[in-house]
């Protein structure tokens, strides 16, 4: 069973979100990194890019394929984790420590639509059962 961290918010497309005031730190979950396999490259967005909830935010490439990361919330990219450019493997070794971007969020109420950690855990259990 993939690791799920308390205190974070989650999407059904396996992004995690950590709210920090008007900002949101975003990464991919342990489940996602495991499903993708060895991450070889993270294509980070440009700072200033505006996204709506559900838009393509950035791409995480593994040997198996390219995986879209969707914006969990609407807003503007305020920061990107450029450490991943040289060390994409961090996404595999520490999915919750390896944030991809920080969003300046434009509609804080959207966060209510995200799952809490327990809900995500349940969601994962159901997903695994279905694919069982």
């Amino acid at each position: 069973m993939a690791n799920v961290l308390e205190g974070l918010l989650y999407t059904e497309t396996h992004e995690w979100v950590k709210l920090e005031g008007s900002k949101a730190r975003v990464g991919v979950t342990d489940f996602a990194q495991h499903a993708m396999g060895d991450v070889v490259y993270v294509e980070l967005p440009e700072v200033g890019k505006k996204v709506s909830k559900g838009d393509d935010l950035c791409v995480v490439e593994s040997v198996k394929g390219a995986n879209e990361v969707y914006a969990p919330l609407s807003g503007e990219v305020a920061e990107v984790n450029s450490a991943l450019e040289d060390s994409p493997e961090l996404v595999n070794s520490d999915a919750y420590g390896s944030w991809l971007v920080v969003l300046e969020i434009s509609d804080p109420s959207e966060a209510n639509q995200l799952m809490g950690w327990e809900a995500y855990k349940k969601f994962l259990a159901e997903t695994e059962k279905k694919e069982g």
């Binding site: 070889v40 490259y41 490439e61 593994s62 040997v63 198996k64 394929g65 390219a66």
Partner: peptide, 12 residues
């Protein structure tokens, strides 16, 4: 760098 290519990424 095959993640760029059609057999992996299809329409993207």
């Amino acid at each position: 760098l095959q993640a760029r290519e059609q057999h992996i990424r299809r329409e993207k």
